[in-house]
């Protein structure tokens, strides 16, 4: 299998789906002539022309809503945001319109749209540009929330998201776009709403997704196995809404211990929501309270060491795992 960059995997998914389905188009700031703020859409204007790859003015509410309206009328828009932080100015279009129109119309409309872009802390962008929006959108009935953790996952999940008849919030990370990973040459799709047991283990269940999974969780799992003799079952959640509760519960019933890692704030954070879903079905199986490793409850600081310090680290994860394993 050839190794390609995360951004190339995303691009391949979009290109394949646009070749397959005429109603798919890409719209966003700088996606066309500039070839993408982060070069995800590089070459796509040339390939598909300005009818299907469209630059927009800096009008998030305008083009997010445009996408929703177009999706209601038979198109399959891919709307790229430069950052999910910027969706703070267009949430009405996503939360009120994309998520509710089907319900409020008694099922008369479907809204097949993918909103995608970089989510979370992307290194020294400061508090305004570093929001982790997953918990905000994962709360919303009517939305699907997806967070890939490798180029392989990114391509397979994005392809399914584009074919999905519901609105999908697709959370990437600017910091992951250059990461390499093996991606098959032949076509494949990955399911939405299905978590992946990435590593089987006996001692503790570790739950994570997206960037933190790649940045700190995988290294922590390696260290736990090599240096601490703790056998981790690692689950890549992949879809945050709907959450694959069954896969998590099955794992915790086996390991009797659970640690959740994300880069969100803890209070009302993504992990807090996951705990609410699993603590009851797992209560009798748990040998320790569920641990939740998250970012500090502060605005995201600019200075590199401060930013680094606020986020979950390999050490914090190891400490949490030791805590639940009483080791």
């Amino acid at each position: 299998m050839p190794a390609i960059q995360f951004r190339e995997a995303l691009r391949a998914a979009m290109v394949e789906e646009m070749e397959r389905d005429e109603t798919v188009f890409l719209m966003g700031e700088e996606v066309a002539q500039y070839n993408g703020a982060y070069k995800v859409s590089e070459g796509m204007l040339e390939k598909f022309g300005p009818r299907r790859v469209l630059d927009t003015p800096i009008s998030e509410a305008g083009f997010a809503g445009l996408g929703v309206g177009a999706a209601c009328c038979g198109l399959r828009p891919i709307i790229e945001f430069m950052s999910w932080s910027f969706t703070l100015v267009c949430m009405d279009q996503i939360i009120n319109n994309a998520a509710n129109i089907r319900y409020m119309s008694g099922g008369q409309f479907k809204v097949p749209i993918v909103f995608r872009g970089g989510n979370g802390i992307a290194h020294q962008l400061g508090a305004t540009h570093s929001h982790r929006m997953e918990a905000v959108y994962s709360r919303i009935p009517g939305l699907i929330v997806v967070a890939p953790s490798t180029p392989y996952e990114a391509k397979g999940l994005l392809k399914t998201s584009i074919r999905c008849d519901d609105p999908v919030i697709f959370l990437e990370s600017e910091k992951m776009l250059g990461e390499m990973g093996e991606v098959p040459e032949e076509e494949y799709l990955l399911p939405l709403g299905k978590a992946k047991v990435e590593r089987e283990g006996q001692d503790v269940t570790l739950l994570s997704y997206g960037r933190p999974l790649q940045r700190v969780v995988r290294p922590a799992v390696k260290a736990l196995s090599n240096d601490y003799n703790i056998d981790v079952e690692l689950i890549d959640l992949r879809t945050l809404r709907p959450l694959d509760v069954q896969t998590i519960v099955d794992s915790v019933r086996k390991t009797n211990r659970c640690v959740i890692v994300d880069e969100d704030w803890g209070y009302c954070g993504m992990g807090a929501g996951i705990i609410q879903k699993i603590q009851k079905p797992c209560f009798d199986d748990l040998d320790a309270p569920i641990e939740y490793v998250h970012s500090d409850e502060i605005p995201v600081p600019f200075s590199h060491p401060l930013e680094e310090a606020m986020m979950p680290s390999v050490d914090r994860i190891i400490a949490a795992v030791q805590e639940v394993c009483y080791k």
Partner: peptide, 22 residues
């Protein structure tokens, strides 16, 4: 009839998107 919409001004981008689809 693509709807009544409750948020003041929230429907305007949707209308533009419907015209985009056309």
């Amino acid at each position: 009839n693509n709807g009544g919409h409750g948020i003041v001004g929230g429907q305007i981008p949707l209308g533009v998107g419907m015209a985009f689809a056309q």
